[in-house]
């Protein structure tokens, strides 16, 4: 049977995969996708805790409200982030992070 730990483990593994993607990949858009994956992993933890800590026989809806707000903020973040990537691509002709080192020098 499924325990809370199973959900937390799956959520943590998804977060770890996203973290690995952010560190390993050099493509800005892929890095951005992996950030979304990490946000979703956090959402899974929140929903699992909400279900496993019921209040008055119902899931704790405070946790699900948090997830709702996170999803909304993530959608806004994607819009702004992709606009920045577009502007960056127009200026530099690349989305490869190794080429975007102007602030290093």
């Amino acid at each position: 049977m499924i325990t809370l730990n199973d959900y937390l483990l799956v959520s943590g593994l998804l977060f770890a995969i996203g973290l690995a993607g952010v560190v390993l990949r050099r493509n800005l858009i892929i890095i951005f996708m992996c950030l979304e994956m990490m946000l979703s992993a956090a959402n899974l933890s929140l929903v699992a805790f909400s279900r496993f800590n019921p209040s008055n026989g119902l899931p704790d809806y405070n946790g699900q409200m948090m997830v709702f707000l996170i999803i909304t903020v993530a959608a806004a973040e994607v819009a702004v982030g992709l606009a920045i990537i577009i502007a960056l691509f127009r200026a530099r002709r690349t989305v490869h992070v190794d080429d975007l080192d102007a602030m290093k020098h």
């Binding site: 049977m1 325990t3 809370l4 730990n5 483990l9 943590g12 496993f52 019921p54 008055n56 899931p59």
Partner: peptide
């Protein structure tokens, strides 16, 4: 993660062990 989850007794509850009860609600 494995260390934290291993020492988290709350996490060993089964999904069936925390049923939702609309009557209580």
């Amino acid at each position: 993660l494995a260390t934290v989850l291993g020492s988290f007794p709350e996490g060993h509850r089964l999904l069936n062990a925390v049923p939702l009860s609309p009557e209580t609600a």
